[in-house]
Amino acid sequence: MDPRCKLPLAVLFTVLFFLPLPLVLLGAYLGALSLAIWLGLGFRELVRPLRTIAPLLLLVLLLTPPFQRGGQAYLRIGGLTLLSADGVREAARLALRLTGVTFAFFVLLRSTAPADLILALRAFGLPFGAGLVVSVALQYVPGLKGLFDQVQDAHRLRRAGNGAPPARGLQVVRSLLPQLTSVLILSIRRIPILAMALEMRGVGRTNRRSSMRRLPQGRRLVLSSLAAAAVGLGAVVAIFLFP
């Protein structure tokens, strides 16, 4: 599906998970998103985001009920209600919301190339400068990771054999400061060079300059738009079917 159609769908599903809808309907939305990930990306990809948010889900399920004590009490210790009907309902709602929003973004990001996502955002009005910043930053991330590894290795070699015990806890931050200083200076020194490269391509000039490529138009976009409209309309119509 075209990224310009996937983006509004992801936003729509995110909004739906924040609406005060019945739990059954939220579960149905989550089921639809899970099915999309399973069919489109495979079962293993369905487990990946779940594994990432598992600690947060556990926190939500454990800590929400004590703060929502209305309705029938299921577990009470010393006059304090720890588990009640309202608590269980709220915990389920928040767990569905967290999982649903994560799945909505996951399916968008896993099925779309970063460059196409930026182009889709450009189609929805993201300024050229902002799009350029994000795409250049994405290009620089692997290079800076390599730079950080190099600096770390160099500092490790300088420390080798001095017999100092390895830093622990917050001392690690202090021991990282010389490495961070090197990384920051080396990164900042790249700014004028990158700026010159951008200027060579016409950025910041009034005359004609190079621009980003455009996403394809035509039949594929029409079909994608129709499919996205059908899915979105179905999700909204379902709200009226489950009052």
């Binding site: 350029l132 994000v134 930053a137 991330v141 990164s187 790249r190 004028p192 990158l194 700026a195 910041g204």
Partner: peptide, 20 residues
């Protein structure tokens, strides 16, 4: 270089450093 190219470059590099 010009201020616009320099600003875009500065923000892009600092964005990448923050992300890394």
């Amino acid at each position: 270089p010009s201020s616009i190219a320099l600003r875009i470059a500065a923000v892009a590099v600092l964005t990448a450093v923050t992300a890394v």
